[in-house]
């Protein structure tokens, strides 16, 4: 991997939260155009990793470097607007800086949220809301799109449709994608790399495209358009106990 062209890179990154080391010694880099999916059990530090990358959490050790002037789009996890705050989709897209109308319309169309501009955010369905968040992340024509469990709360066809759309967006923009998936084994089939995180990087590899496999159909039924794939955890190093247990548990289900 050439570190020279990396969009964003973490070196020996450790994050402490509430007196506990949530992540330790995480080193990785994302190249332009790459699709990287992060999987891991609950509480494994996946979201923490993304928050450290966007600068919301200070590293306890190590560092995060971005390429100078990197355009970054971010889709946060479980954003919930307080009902006391009035906000239309159009106004939301203009935060924190105003965007020309063509830009807004284009981003909404790309994210599959066209025609929602005048709707209040609180009146959107879960799927519409996720697409609006995606549209907002696309406004800046990002070189790196970071998504934190973007399909939480969507049903399985909804998830597959979201991944499909993300793949289209990525192909037209050519941006790199870093995504946290809440499924331990199911990832976007277009992923170049899958990182399994559990306090540290447990393993790393390519997903298997198994659209015809029984296992896959059992999980997702048919008609997901090949947007999803499975990831098998291949461990290249010895594990601490918790990591092993989590994987064993995950593979049984």
């Amino acid at each position: 991997m050439t570190l020279e062209g990396a969009l964003i890179r973490s070196e020996g990154l450790s994050i402490r939260h509430g007196g506990r080391e949530v992540l330790r010694d995480v080193s990785f880099a994302i190249e332009a155009g790459e699709i990287v999916t992060v999987v891991g059990p609950n509480g494994s530090g996946k979201s923490t990793l993304l928050k450290a990358l966007i600068g919301a959490l200070p590293p306890a050790a190590g560092r995060v470097t971005r390429r100078a002037g990197l355009r970054l789009g971010y889709v946060p996890q479980g954003l919930r607007l307080d009902p006391s705050m009035p906000m239309t989709v159009g106004r939301f897209l203009n935060l924190p800086k105003r965007v020309a109308e063509e830009g807004r319309t284009r981003a909404l169309a790309e994210a599959g949220a066209q025609g929602l501009e005048d709707r209040p955010l609180t009146a959107l369905s879960g799927g519409q809301f996720q697409r609006v968040l995606l549209a907002r992340a696309l406004l800046d024509r990002p070189e790196l799109l970071i998504l934190d469990e973007p399909t939480t709360g969507l049903d399985q066809p909804g998830q597959a449709a979201f991944y499909q759309r993300l793949e289209d967006v990525r192909n037209s923009l050519g941006c790199a994608v870093l995504m946290v998936s809440h499924e331990l084994h199911v990832v976007m089939s277009a992923s170049d790399r899958v990182l399994c995180v559990n306090g540290h990087i447990c393993c790393e590899g390519r997903p298997e495209v198994v659209a015809q496999a029984e296992e896959y159909r059992a999980l997702f039924g048919t008609g997901t358009g090949g947007a999803l794939a499975l990831y098998r955890h291949e461990h290249s190093h010895r594990h601490d106990e918790t990591c092993e247990l989590d994987h064993t548990h995950g593979e049984d289900t």
Partner: peptide
């Protein structure tokens, strides 16, 4: 104003926008 409103909507969105 714009920074305050963005931070109020979501701290993470604010961080990602350099606020």
């Amino acid at each position: 104003w714009a920074r305050l409103v963005t931070s109020t909507v979501s701290k993470d969105l604010a961080w990602a926008a350099g606020i």
